[in-house]
């Protein structure tokens, strides 16, 4: 299904923030916001849900921790017990540093992998910024226009109240 998309471009983060808040108040569906750097408070203005990546991070870390503890028990207690310095075979304190390291490794790699998968950032992926200047000095707000009671003219008037720099309309299968 093809949709109409509107791209509003701004020259300043405060205008972008105000415009995003206003567009959301009018109930236009916001597709995404493109900025040259992370803008504080934009996730609130866009009404994004809290990220679920934290759960991925926690679970990946937890799995890493458990696997490593099990692996160490398996190698030094179950499968091939070795007497190291007269310590008991199931020496939990000695297992903890490695369990800690692998927890951090799994949590770190797991959350980055989850982020890449969720964002579709596979190798060779082409960047498709709505305008190249969002990598330099401009801020773009992309809105989907598919409801009958939403008009481009009304949206444009709304954005112009916040120092709109450029206004562009596109029609396509997916967002620009």
């Amino acid at each position: 299904m093809t949709s109409r998309f509107v791209i509003g471009t701004f020259g300043d983060e405060s205008h972008l923030l105000a415009a995003t808040t206003a567009v959301r108040r009018e109930d236009y569906p916001i597709v995404d916001v493109y900025t040259p750097y992370p803008v504080h408070g934009i996730e609130k203005a866009m009404g994004l849900r809290p990220s679920r990546l934290t759960w991925v991070c926690f679970l990946a870390g937890f799995i890493g921790c458990m696997l490593t503890l099990f692996f160490q028990y398996w190698t030094s207690y179950l499968d091939w017990p070795i007497n190291v310095g007269g310590k008991p075979f199931d020496s939990l304190p000695a297992f903890i540093p490695i369990a800690f390291e692998v927890t951090v490794l799994f949590a770190g790699l797991g959350v980055v992998a989850a982020l890449f998968v969720r964002c579709g950032l596979w190798p060779g992926k082409k960047a498709r910024p709505p305008t190249p200047r969002v990598t330099d000095d401009q801020f773009a707000l992309v809105v989907r226009l598919d409801r009958a009671d939403h008009s481009a003219a009304h949206l444009r008037a709304l954005l112009e109240r916040h120092d709109l720099v450029e206004f562009d309309e596109r029609i396509g299968e997916e967002s620009p």
Partner: peptide, 12 residues
Amino acid sequence: WFCQYMLIWYGN
């Protein structure tokens, strides 16, 4: 806490 405990436990 663990650093202090583990090194002493390990050194024995």
